[in-house]
Design a protein around this nucleic acid. Structure first.
Lengths: 338, 338
DNA sequence: GCTATCTTCGCAATCGATTGCGGGAAAATC
DNA sequence: GATTTTCCCGCAATCGATTGCGAAGATAGC
């Protein structure tokens, strides 16, 4: 920004009028005569004048920028949420600033602070796995900067949220496994403190209960990434002989587990049926293709942005928090039986 | 941004001093007595004062924001580039504004314009497939806003570029196919106007030439997405009997082609060896896993950001354009023979 | 006691754009 | 010809922060 893009003052000086006249002429204010108006407009066109968005934001106290905080952009789900957000934002003339927390609570805080420093008009947040406090969200909220959470939400803040019905999704998946013949289903889940993981685990339990299958706590282990599967290969190996199904908390974990089982000679889904969660594009491409629950990232992004826009446009209104729940659809594929 | 976060003037009024005193006190200017300095600092701390980044940018003519324009964030390669960019940017106190062109030249133009309006300090761009002119890049460049291209670069603009050695990557892949026994290699490529696709096609040709294999133009077709494979199923089917290898311009096309061949009873890699380009995470997960050329998105992002920072920090210097070429590494997997 | 020096702080301009208010000149009215 | 109205446009403040310059008040020096 070393440059000096032509400002309204430059035009004023060049044409021997005042800056206010230029400003008014450019927006067809009736106070300006047609002659000068056309003269100014022509000149502005010629020098390719563009208003300084920074100055406008400062003056108008509205930045038309919204901040997004996500764990990692690299994950398909998050990048599709961003696409959904951007699609709506773009149409309404908003820009987005995206920050990654990398699942680090401290970085999440500094990101939020930086976005507030930039005077974003609102925030869209998916919490990191390690976030415990929530004062940074409260800060924003108290400063009249609307916040909408998506996917991993903050219970303590009373605002709009866009989530997947993790409980029912997991119940759906697990029921499907059971109804296609599984009785001993291994659950690869997250650490208990992660709400989403808890919900999915509860859905798993619920499905077992509904089908009169006793819960075997040895069949629920913490293992929610490909690396975790590698790290716990021996444990999983030792469990494989006694199971006939696997429900993993996400697709990549499911795929890793499936590969492991396959490599040991188990037939998928004949010996062991496998299901994931999320419907990552990989799920359709692996062999056998993976049964999973479809999470609608793009739509969730659009919905979150719409909720945020609603709050931004009606700052005076007292908003009763809306919780938008997206029901995941079962995507039956070849990794489970029929 | 309806709120009024406490400004330097609020502090000044509350403490009965001038705004300039507050400003100086907060940055330990020697002109301010220790007493008032501490009083101001304590108060600022109490009300959680944070300088308005917008006002600072306007005053200092430096926004510490850089603009990124990419085709689609959803693609793994692009999101890893963004992660690389962000990693460097974050460390240097820069924020990023990300815009997607969705492969639309017009949207790319408006995105660039919007970023310039926001007075970004620099631009990192990967062109859309449909971009033909380049005046929008020239605009930025002429206004002293540094631009660095990555992956899909603009030849006409004389600036730094970060690219993959597509030619050699394709040659490497094709040679590998040939050296493991393939003689009739189908090439699934892009439209000829896309430089990257051209480079890869030329690499393919070069490898054939180096191994004394005549080029059969019937074996080079335009087909660079999964959908394109579906659309051209019949054509590809008709070619399969006469080929023993496939080199696709990207991994997802390779995977789609591989699935098609598999479904028709061809054994991979025994009957037909398959290779892609890019090393998308899926490549390692499909069955058989896909041989491909690794494109280092994260590193390319870091490099692009570093080049841009160099230009931003030395605006007066006359920079001789640097072209940073990343050599893709061959990732041998199960879809090709040994 | 008077001048010189230093400490400490405020005024005002600036970045770019907006906007209420007021004022000068031309046109209209009596 | 004097007054009122209308038309055009500029002044100045504002948004938040910075900074050169100048100016009080305190202290020091003689």
């Amino acid at each position: 920004m070393k440059q000096h893009l032509t400002s309204i003052n430059d035009i004023a000086k060049a044409l021997g009028v005042s800056a206010s006249t230029v400003s008014r002429a450019l927006k067809d204010h009736p106070d300006i005569s047609q002659a000068t108006r056309e003269r100014i407009k022509a000149f502005a066109e010629k020098v390719n004048y563009r208003p300084n968005a920074l100055a406008l934001s400062l003056k108008k106290q509205v930045s038309f920028t919204i901040g997004i905080v996500i764990p990692e952009i690299i994950h398909h789900f998050f990048s599709s949420v961003i696409s959904g957000i951007e699609e709506i934002a773009y149409g309404k003339g908003y820009r987005v600033m995206i920050c990654q927390s990398n699942e680090d609570a401290k970085r999440e805080r500094t990101n939020i602070q930086a976005l507030l420093d930039h005077r974003v008009d609102g925030l869209l947040v998916c919490m990191s796995k390690t976030t415990s406090g929530f004062s940074h969200f409260a800060d924003a909220f108290n400063n009249q900067v609307p916040v909408v959470f998506f996917d991993r939400v903050c219970k303590e803040i009373d605002t709009d949220k866009v989530i997947t019905d993790d409980f029912n999704g997991a119940r759906l998946i697990t029921s499907h496994l059971i109804e296609t013949g599984c009785r001993n289903i291994l659950h690869l889940g997250t650490h208990p403190q992660l709400d989403i993981g808890q919900e999915r685990f509860q859905g798993y339990l619920k499905a077992l209960y509904e089908h009169d299958i006793p819960y075997n706590s040895q069949l629920a282990i913490v293992c929610d990434t490909m690396d975790a599967v590698s790290a716990q290969t021996e444990l999983i190996k030792s469990l494989l002989p006694q199971i006939d199904g696997i429900f993993a908390v996400n697709d990549s974990t499911a795929i890793a587990a499936m590969r492991l089982a396959k490599s040991l000679g188990y037939k998928i889904p004949e010996n062991i049926a496998v299901a994931g969660f999320g419907d990552d594009p990989v799920a359709a491409l692996v062999d056998p293709s993976l049964t999973t629950a479809q999470q609608k990232g793009y739509e969730m992004g659009m919905e979150a942005m719409n909720l945020l826009l609603n709050r931004i446009s009606n700052p005076e209104t007292i908003h009763t928090p809306r919780i938008k729940v997206f029901e995941p659809a079962l995507r039956k594929r070849q990794s489970t039986r029929f």
